[in-house]
């Protein structure tokens, strides 16, 4: 038995009591549970920190994947919306006729809008966007045809429907040919579909891992706080009273792990965003990866807390509880 501390032994009873008594909240049953939970985190900062980091990393992956899936969905949606057909007119079609044809096409079902691009406008654009402008001067006349840019309705988007629309428009006498380039959008859609399934599977596995991490942490805590449980049991504590600090521990680990995961996922997304935007630019996309909505980001710590709670409850009240209580 170690010797008592001399300083405290000389303390007046009133001083000692004043120092000893905690806050009003900490003597309620829930306050007591929170106090014990926080005290455990404080007294084992390294072990607690490591557990939180593991949880944060495990949760960050599905979070990042959900960020990416959402951003790719949005990107795909934008490309679907931005997909257009370009109908090139015969060289002898006058601007007035071309514009009139564009108006007629806009009235057709399946077409949302049209825009007539005159031969002069096409030439000006070509000069501005290519290095071959000077070469056109050699030709003496404008070799570029007028064109009608056709934006189909959203319901018409999709490779087969666009193909059908293009064939239909090509039948019109003043139109030489119709060009559309949706292959990369189709490929992106397929890649996103596969990625979504893979992400869902990975997210499932990682969520299960997070549950196991929390469960195992609670199990170790149970073993470590065996004497507290024994004493509480002898003093007439109910199982819910004894389990409450462990439930709160799971909740807190989940919440803090979720916050760490949010930070990690945002950092990783920031790193990925720039090269992804550049890649999207190479495919002519008007916009790259966009940030997930704030509400989704806010949900992550809450989801982490829920996972922590489920992990703790399943350990304390699930099928393995008899074995745990026998060990503890």
């Amino acid at each position: 038995m170690s010797e008592p501390r001399a300083g405290h032994r000389n303390a007046s009873p009133h001083t000692a009591l004043t120092r000893a008594i905690g806050s009003r909240m900490s003597y309620t049953q829930r306050g007591y549970a929170w106090r014990r939970t926080l005290a455990r985190l404080r007294t084992r900062p390294f072990a607690s920190g490591l557990t939180l980091l593991v949880l944060g990393i495990v949760l960050a992956m599905p979070v990042l994947l959900s960020f990416l899936a959402g951003a790719l969905d949005e990107l795909r949606g934008n490309e679907d919306q931005g997909a257009t057909l370009t109908a090139y007119l015969s060289l002898d079609v006058a601007d007035l006729d071309g514009a009139s044809l564009a108006t007629q096409l806009a009235a057709r079902p399946g077409i949302q809008s049209t825009r007539y691009v005159s031969r002069d406008e096409a030439l000006a654009t070509f000069r501005a966007e290519s290095d071959l402008g000077d070469a056109l001067d050699v030709l003496g006349s404008n070799p570029l045809p007028g064109a009608i840019v056709i934006a189909p309705e959203r319901a018409t988007a999709g490779r087969q429907r666009m193909q059908a629309l293009a064939t239909e428009i090509e039948q019109i006498s003043d139109i030489e040919r119709v060009r559309y380039d949706l292959q990369w959008v189709e490929r992106l859609r397929a890649v996103v579909a596969v990625a979504r399934v893979a992400a869902a599977l990975l997210a499932g596995f990682l969520t299960l891992t997070a549950l196991l991490v929390v469960g195992n942490t609670i199990r170790l805590e149970l073993l470590d706080r065996r004497s507290e449980r024994e004493v509480s049991h002898l003093l007439g504590a109910s199982r819910s009273f004894m389990n409450r600090p462990f439930v709160y521990t799971g909740l807190l680990y989940g919440l803090l792990g979720g916050l760490i995961a949010t930070g990690l996922a945002i950092a990783a997304f920031s790193l990925l965003k720039r090269p992804a935007d550049e890649l999207a630019g190479l495919y002519g996309a008007q916009m790259g990866l966009s940030w997930p909505p704030k509400a989704l980001i806010g949900l992550i710590p809450a989801t982490g807390a829920l996972l922590g709670l489920v992990g703790a409850l399943s350990t304390l009240y699930g099928p393995s509880r008899q074995r745990i209580y026998a060990d503890a």
């Binding site: 170690s2 010797e3 008592p4 405290h8 032994r9 303390a11 009873p13 000692a16 009591l17 008594i21």
Partner: peptide
Amino acid sequence: ALHRVGLEHAADMQPETLSG
């Protein structure tokens, strides 16, 4: 209770620092 057992002055001490 602490007063009754003569330990009021030790209220803020950890049990392991007390004698048997």
